[in-house]
Design a protein around this nucleic acid. Structure first.
Lengths: 361, 361
DNA sequence: GTTGGCACTCCGTTTCTCTGAGTGCTAATT
DNA sequence: AATTAGCACTCAGAGAAACGGAGTGCCAAC
């Protein structure tokens, strides 16, 4: 059943008033807020119907209405108006993002802090898994007991490891191994690096000291580390400022749930996508995690380059200004896509161009 | 004026009871807890004197006493008994630490989580500044527009950067630069890397494309990054479980103060060292930061190798079990010193020895 | 110096009342 | 059939009052 025009107006008014005031909304308030011409008694009937349809709920008999999860969902899908950001807001965002262009490895954290500051909610930043391979190997001989493994990865980052050995090796073995790895291990995903391949390489190098397996183990570790993605959260404590988290136990449950990066990565699992936009919203009970059943998550997707996608978003009470937060997030996400996105590296002489740096965690 | 033996006993009893129950302690409770033979009236006199001496305070006229900051201080300096850890506890700690030996770059974080778990308080980990130098340079030519800078540092970590250029370079220039940097820039602290040196190198390499300054800038950045130390905090939300942080505003103030790593690094500024032990305690108002005037900080120092020192500790309410926390922290700190400490690298064949890995943040 | 006794204080809790916003229903109106 | 005015009813939250009890401070006796 489709809601009547007036019901939609009433629902929107209740949601917006409740978001603004955090108080249950009564019939008179709705009349005033929605600018309707009918009387409060009429609205009482409408409210009553919206309640039995499941869009609203009543904390107790003689109180106003508050939106139910279904009410929020309908609101964000159908009723909510796209909020435009003010010039001031867009300027702040652009400023902050450009500032950080030079330190790509800190970008996730900085974007999180920016979002936290803009919205007043804890910010989460996720980067998707990536199918990594090694593009190039270098083994650097330092001294008889020490060498460095340097891997250039397919996503243009570099990883390295210093290896100290409890025995001596000859620099020619290092050189030989380096050549063999370059020949045999480049452009392989971790599943393609088989024990057979490793022992073949070991024989070819006449390595009887286990160096081959040291290098191979590091390669596998690095390739694996990318495959699960990264997750971080900043500004958890700002939750405490919101009235729905005044209860320290509840706040503690939510915050400590969010402190585990495994949990963060599973946040977007519920992909109720409310339309064509790139902003995802997970409202209250739509969250899979019990701990978040009365919190909402809003995330915007961005292009992290090299075919990788990332998500940046916030966690807050169900009573959130979805419209404003969504607008801010998608603007930030667009900015990130512009900075990191596939397409060409930014050009410019004298200023060096860095794409990557190591992102050892 | 020296306190009488009985006053000491009374003070200790009040502190310990209050730590245990979080309730003001009355005269009768003291008699029972301290196992004294006198009557509660006598203790009331003692309590009254301890109060006017500033060791105790009274929330209101008809309540028991709670320790004042000065009381806690006297307690930890003079009265507190060294707590011994149970075998079970030491086993847990050893287990957890050894597990992580293989990932030195995550050690700070892991140690923090361990401490948080052991004590139930947020854990902070600090590593002191280090006077870094570059031990060895490698510039790896990848293609005409790309090369990698690899630096082996004096603390046996490796840093690297991938540089993409908007113009072409010859591999011989890269090789030449590599040699020049090895000859001229090794073992220099950041202040010794002068513009004069850089431009001399630039001329020597016949580098008219600014590569020298790109490399030098990276070197300076890396050397600087070590000079301020690192700081991190985990488990902030566990503060919320303690009754003194039931007020969400207070909790928010403290937690958001602690979320700034600048603030964390300034924590140990007050070095009231209560004796010979390596555990530092900062009790309530001894904290310089207004935000921490009624929290306490306990930190233990450890040897992070290469002459570097680190601190691991917790932040909690002034009402903390100083004895137990101090014992746990110093055990963990000893463990860390054993793992990282100067002296020899742990030996063992087959298991590779890694000292460092990159710690790009 | 120590102790028992006693009046007094004052916090935290419970109980009660009161108030007012808001509802749901009915009957009249359009 | 939809809307409206009117009215009785509900109930959370605020405030006032009463209560209980842990604990003190002091005094007089030991």
């Amino acid at each position: 059943m489709e809601l009547s025009e007036r019901k939609k107006k009433v629902l929107a008014a209740v949601v917006e008033e409740y978001i603004r005031t955090a108080e249950p909304v009564g019939s008179k308030t709705v009349v005033a807020a929605a600018g309707l011409t009918c009387s409060s008694a009429t609205i009482r009937n409408e409210l009553s119907e919206l309640t039995s349809l499941g869009y609203l709920e009543q904390p107790h008999t003689s109180a106003g209405r508050i939106p139910a999860a279904q009410g929020y969902r309908f609101y964000v899908n159908e009723l909510m108006e796209q909020r435009r950001l003010s010039d001031e807001e867009t300027d702040t965002i652009n400023d902050r993002l450009n500032h950080r262009l030079e330190k790509p490895e800190q970008l996730m954290g900085d974007a999180g802090r920016l979002v936290g500051q803009l919205t007043g909610y804890p910010a989460v930043a996720l980067s998707g898994p990536r199918a990594l391979t090694v593009t190039r190997f270098d083994l650097l001989y330092v001294d008889a007991n020490t060498f460095i493994i340097v891997l250039l990865l397919s996503n243009s980052t570099v990883r390295n490891k210093l290896v100290k050995l409890p025995f001596s090796v000859d620099s020619t073995l290092i050189t030989k191994l380096s050549a063999l790895f370059n020949a045999g291990f480049t452009n392989l995903t971790d599943s393609e690096i088989t024990p057979v391949l490793i022992s073949a390489t070991e024989r070819a190098a006449r390595d009887n000291m286990g160096l081959t397996s040291i290098v191979a183990a590091f390669v596998i570790e690095v390739l694996n580390s990318g495959s699960s993605g990264e997750a971080m959260i900043t500004g958890e404590s700002s939750l405490l400022q919101h009235p729905e988290f005044r209860d320290p136990d509840k706040a503690h449950r939510v915050i400590s749930y969010l402190s585990d990066s495994e949990h963060l990565m599973s946040l977007p699992a519920t992909t109720v996508n409310g339309g064509s936009s790139k902003v995802r919203m997970i409202i209250g009970p739509e969250n899979l995690a019990e701990e978040l059943k009365d919190s909402s998550v809003i995330m915007a997707e961005y292009d992290a380059g090299e075919g990788q996608r990332g998500l940046i978003g916030v966690v807050g009470p169900t009573r959130m200004d979805y419209s404003a937060v969504a607008a801010k997030l998608s603007y930030v996400a667009e900015g990130l896509s512009r900075l990191l996105g596939s397409g060409e590296a930014p050009a410019g002489f004298g200023k060096m161009i860095l794409k990557g740096d190591t992102i050892d965690e």
